[in-house]
Design a protein around this nucleic acid. Structure first.
Length: 870
RNA sequence: GGGGGCAUAGCUCAGUUGGUUUAGAGCAUCUGCCUUACAAGCAGAGGGUCCGCGGUUCGAACCCGUGUGCCCCCA
């Protein structure tokens, strides 16, 4: 078989992915093996794959493929999130393009369009995951608005309501006065607006004619003031804290309070607090129990509560009240001021912060067992630093606002009668059944939907129908899941809440390990974003470099727990690595055709095989340990080095036969075995090329994808050391050749002066090949007219036709000597220190003594060499 | 405003309870090679006040304090 010059990933990837899926390798059903379950963090249903998904899913695939090869029964569940806000926004935008305003549609008509949209675009991201090689169990694809899933979300709402954990309360939202609807933060457009800042003085309720001056950009809201706030350390106002002032024009008496929220430098340092019309003021209001005076109607006109200007628009009122304040003597000055104002994306109206009734989950008690699960390490976070963050948040957990003024999502199962009574049940019939008094009355269901996270917190068990079909065989087998891989920014939105829901509804934690990935940034460290245009086209990259190279590039640059600075050059490195693997394959295929079945395996090949086998085993152990502790990037680097350096650069060169010479069959077969073991180690990271080469090497009885990985035997350090010595001698002598400008093609003669020939005799043939020596001999005295090199306690003399540069030889030896002497001083200092000798552990002491002895011997060798140079 | 994190070679990072040759790797750089698997390659080399200052210790990249500079999350 003729192999192409370079590795070409495209067709290979399509071929193997289809084969794996057709063979059913990714599909799991409960059996007597141990389960390894991973649920995908469901991407937005209408989303497309970006670098964050790529990182996150590559990591999951590595863990899952590895588990598959270790004999677990792995189940990786794919699916998507209905993502109420993002999806609804996309559908609204699509309708607007078609000239259909959302307000012209009924709820059912709108949902019709939304489902249509979902069917059309919902599968894209799942297709893209296939391109990446993700070994997902496609037969289990789930969606947070599947019929059963929907029912379960409603069930949880009703259950928590009955337990008294869900209640209704007031909250500040963004209000569009023109569309008369609430807006999410995502639907706001912030614009810089040139406005004015008004300095207004409020008369103090103390004897005399004294005032306090505040600064505001919204003078019309003073009618809703319920306090004035200053900084506790502000000397200008300290004496006024606890006193009262009067709101101008209406003369309402309000307290003066102190809080370090106030910025001393800003405005006058005194802040008017209007809890009904500003989010920060609202929080201050809650903190200090201030009166909330809502002075605005839903169309933006002033309400009865304002007391003045009732029924006039707030923007008009601003002009009028400014004049009236001036006339009343309360206006100190007006300054120009540029600030950010939120506009409605849809109507371009200035958005008003406004209080409205929302649904909440009381989190305090629910959170307690979930906090405990992480603090006790029942659930492990990787990296562990996120434990602190989690604890801090969980200890100060606030109630969760779960209602959204949207149509796309799980509709809140609450009904209101005309008197405003609330009935929560799974459906209207159940309301009637439980509350006979409602029969015949007109009931209206709450128009709002639930927060998306109120459905995704059920994900780890509801994908196995743990709630819709409790205690079924699958959920009992797959739950709790094994590892969750996700981004740290959703530790509170999602991770914490899944733990809460798992404890509450399954009575068990949802996963044992949580691996937090970094954030994908560009080369300059900026977050990837659409507006910056720094987000690369992932599918384009896969086309250009191959999926394996993309997976390699992204993993090699992802240190555990740190952000990933994406740089296309690592993809190039991945592609080059593919090519390296491909070329090694070509070399083996060449040797396959030229085998020698006669005689014994040569001694030097035996040495090389022995060494590589040991190196392989020891590295496998290292990699196992790294993967156990989620150091995936390090594991990949280690495998990369093992293949490129140890296998290709050292081992293959050591066993390489002479020009057009055959290779002993025993060596060849063992080498294929080693290579296959390397491919297996690499497979979870780069599944396509490893499977391809696995089958190119020889006819296989099974696919690499499911081949069992069986570690490992003990490692003989003596064998490793023998190999390291050989490498060290080769590198040192090559360096000497280089420095003395001996051309690679020119052969040398090598004379070794050592007290122990044996170690060199075993490696002599390999050494000769690797440094291009025509002859190697042993000597007990210096060789004239040679290049001398000192290594450990031994000396090497290189004889060649090249003129010898004694000066530079000397220089190198002197440099080395200086270094050794410096080192000797530092070691001696330690050993001469009585306190060190007394306090250090015995093995540390022994090491230091050995260091000293070695260094002394080395210094002697160098000095002798120098003496010989004259 | 509250909380968390980071600082080691040009870049990205290792460095496990303080002692493993006066700090390691990959990439990048430099030098020499078109050596019959691979120039998407081979061989070799150079490169660091371990952010500053102070402390604990026989001994600090590592522990403590402090300063500085970056980053993230929540409001």
């Amino acid at each position: 078989m003729e192999l192409s010059k370079n590795y070409i990933p495209g067709e290979v990837e399509i071929k193997w992915y289809k084969h794996w899926v057709d063979s059913g390798y990714f599909h799991s059903t409960p059996n007597d093996k141990k389960a390894y379950t991973v649920v995908i963090p469901p991407p937005n249903v209408t989303g497309v794959l970006h670098m964050g998904h790529c990182l996150n899913n590559t990591i999951q695939d590595i863990l899952v493929r590895r588990a598959r090869m270790q004999g677990f029964n792995p189940c990786w569940v794919p699916g998507t999130d209905h993502a109420s806000i993002a999806t609804e926004a996309k559908v609204v935008a699509m309708l607007r393009e078609r000239g259909i305003p959302k307000s012209s549609l009924t709820r059912d008509e709108f949902l019709g369009y939304a489902w249509e949209w979902k069917e059309k675009y919902g599968g894209i991201i799942l297709q893209q995951l296939r391109k990446m090689g993700c070994s997902l169990d496609w037969e289990r694809t789930s969606f947070t608005m599947d019929a059963d899933y929907y029912e379960s979300v409603i069930k949880v709402f009703v259950d928590l309501y009955k337990k008294g954990k869900i209640y209704r309360g007031k909250r500040m939202i963004n209000w569009d006065v023109r569309a008369k609807t609430a807006l999410s933060d995502e639907e706001l457009i912030h614009k810089e607006v040139a406005g004015k800042i008004y300095h207004l003085r409020y008369k103090l309720d103390i004897p005399g004619d004294e005032y306090i001056t505040i600064a505001t950009v919204r003078p019309e809201t003073i009618l809703g003031d319920s306090a004035i706030c200053v900084h506790p350390k502000d000397d200008r106002y300290k004496h006024l804290v606890g006193k009262f002032a009067f709101v101008p024009l209406i003369n309402r008496r309000i307290p003066i309070i102190a809080d370090d929220y106030v910025e001393i430098e800003f405005g006058t340092g005194a802040l008017k607090v209007t809890p009904a019309h500003d989010i920060n003021d609202f929080m201050l209001g809650q903190k200090y129990n201030l009166e909330v005076i809502d002075t605005m109607n839903d169309d933006g006109t002033l309400s009865e509560a304002a007391g003045l200007y009732i029924g006039q628009d707030r923007i008009e009122v601003r002009k009028i009240i400014t004049k009236d304040l001036d006339a009343a003597g309360n206006l100190v000055k007006i300054e120009d001021y540029t600030h950010q104002v939120g506009f409605s994306e849809r109507t371009d109206a200035i958005v008003e912060p406004r209080l409205s009734l929302q649904w909440w989950v009381d989190m305090k008690k629910l959170a307690a067992p979930a906090l405990e699960a992480v603090m006790s390490d029942e659930i492990s976070f990787h990296p562990a630093k996120f434990k602190n963050l989690y604890r801090h948040w969980m200890e100060g957990i606030k109630d969760w606002c779960i209602s959204r003024q949207l149509w796309w999502g799980h509709r809140i199962p609450a009904w209101y009668d005309e008197e405003g009574n609330i009935y929560v049940a799974h459906n209207e019939a159940e309301v009637n059944a439980n509350h006979p008094e409602t029969k015949g009355k007109k009931l209206t269901q709450d128009a709002d939907c639930l927060d998306t996270w109120f459905s995704s917190w059920l994900w780890p068990f509801e994908v196995f129908k743990g709630l819709s079909n409790p205690n079924n065989a699958e959920v009992n087998y797959y739950y709790p899941t094994s590892t969750l891989v996700t981004a740290p920014e959703i530790i509170f939105f999602w991770v914490a809440r899944m733990i809460i829901a798992g404890e509450e509804y399954m009575g068990k934690i949802p996963f044992k390990d949580v691996y937090f990935t970094g954030i994908v940034r560009d080369k300059q460290g900026r977050k990837m974003s659409k507006s910056l245009g720094n987000s690369p086209d992932l599918l384009g990259l896969i086309d250009q470099y191959g999926a394996d190279a993309v997976r390699f590039g992204i993993m090699i640059a992802s240190p555990a727990g740190n952000d990933l600075l994406f740089d296309e050059s690592t993809l190039e490195q991945g592609r080059n690595f593919n090519n390296k693997l491909w070329n090694a394959t070509k070399l083996l295929k060449m040797w396959e055709a030229r085998q020698n079945k006669e005689g014994e395996i040569p001694e030097d090949a035996k040495f090389a095989m022995d060494w590589f086998q040991t190196k392989l085993t020891s590295t496998q152990n290292e990699v196992d340990e790294m993967l156990k502790t989620f150091r995936l990037s390090e594991a990949l680097k280690t495998i990369y080095g093992l293949i490129w350096d140890d296998f290709c650069s050292w081992y293959l060169e050591w066993i390489k036969p002479g020009f057009e010479q055959p290779m002993h069959q025993g060596v060849y077969e063992k080498t294929v075995e080693y290579y296959d073991a390397l491919l297996q180690l690499l497979h979870p990271f780069m599944p396509f090329i490893t499977e391809e080469i696995h089958h190119t090497l020889k006819t296989q009885t099974e696919d690499l994808c499911i081949k069992l990985y069986t570690p490992t035997s003990k490692v003989d350090d003596a064998v490793l050391n023998a190999g390291a010595l050989l490498q060290n001698v080769i590198s040192t002598l090559r360096d000497a050749r280089n420095k003395n400008q001996i051309k690679p093609k020119d052969a040398i003669e090598l004379h070794i002066q050592t007290s122990n020939n044996a170690p060199y005799q075993t490696i002599q043939k390999i050494l000769a090949k690797q440094i291009n020596a025509s002859d190697i001999q042993y000597t007990s005295s210096a060789i004239a007219a040679s290049i001398v090199v000192a290594l450990e306690k031994d000396k090497f003399y290189i004889v060649s036709d090249q003129a010898i540069d004694t000066a530079s030889l000397k220089e190198n030896l002197l440099k080395d000597l200086a270094h050794q002497k410096g080192f000797l001083i530092s070691v001696s200092k330690k050993l001469d220190n009585e306190k060190f000798v007394q306090n250090a552990k015995p093995d540390v002491l022994a090491i230091e003594q050995k260091k000293k002895a070695d260094t002394l011997a080395r210094i002697q060798t160098i000095e002798e060499s120098l003496a010989q140079l004259g």
